[in-house]
């Protein structure tokens, strides 16, 4: 009897704890952020389709399904590095087949040349172009992701991609060397 009681007790305990753990696993399950969402958060959301997928989320899905992580030119090296960290793979150089990393740009419509054909409006993935048929269109620069998709459909080529200008608010404190310093010196 003594020989049996120990395994019996251990077995019962194991059963009890197993039941508790099993219940807890179901009852207190934490819904982890699905991988696709995490990848989607890293992607720059320009929705430009340069990766070959119709938007950032489809590409996120494709990465989660095993596609390469180096197909996003707007994100550039920084995005590839983050994706590599997340996916646990080696970072690769950007695949040149999908475009090259460029400075941030926004679309600008030369308004007196616009004929109001609405083709760019249909092309814009984030509805950042305002206008109506036969009326002048314009780009809301704050909402433009710089995806380039509106440039091609324009029949009169009145859309330019202009680099985003630095303002005093977005300036990054890159001074010339000789201006960098706290000037005062202990003068005795």
């Amino acid at each position: 009897m003594d020989v049996l009681s120990a395994p019996l007790a251990i077995g019962l305990l194991a059963l009890a704890f197993g039941a508790i753990l099993g219940f807890a696993a179901v009852r207190f399950k934490v819904q982890a952020d699905p991988l696709v969402n995490q990848i989607d958060d890293i992607l720059p959301q320009t929705q430009c389709g340069q990766c070959g997928y119709p938007g950032c989320r489809p590409y996120a899905q494709a990465i989660a399904d095993g596609d390469e992580i180096n197909k996003c030119p707007p994100g550039g090296e920084a995005t590839i590095k983050k994706l590599a960290d997340l996916m646990g793979v080696e970072p690769k150089p950007l695949d040149a087949a999908h475009g090259e990393e460029d400075v941030k740009k926004v679309a600008f419509i030369r308004e007196d040349e616009c004929i109001g054909c609405t083709k760019c409006i249909q092309a814009c993935p984030v509805d950042a172009i305002l206008g109506a048929a036969k009326h002048m269109h314009t780009v809301m620069a704050d909402e433009c992701t710089g995806c380039d998709l509106c440039v091609e459909p324009c029949p009169v080529d009145c859309i330019d991609m202009v680099p985003v200008t630095t303002t005093t608010a977005s300036w990054r404190w890159r001074l010339q060397d000789h201006l960098q310093q706290i000037p005062v010196k202990q003068v005795s």
Partner: peptide, 29 residues
Amino acid sequence: LVQYYRQAKADIRNQRDEKDKAERAKRRF
């Protein structure tokens, strides 16, 4: 030193702005 801190702060602010913008673009898309 302060110069480095200012750069880092500006970078963080810009990153934050970009993140916000990406979030907005996603919502609009």
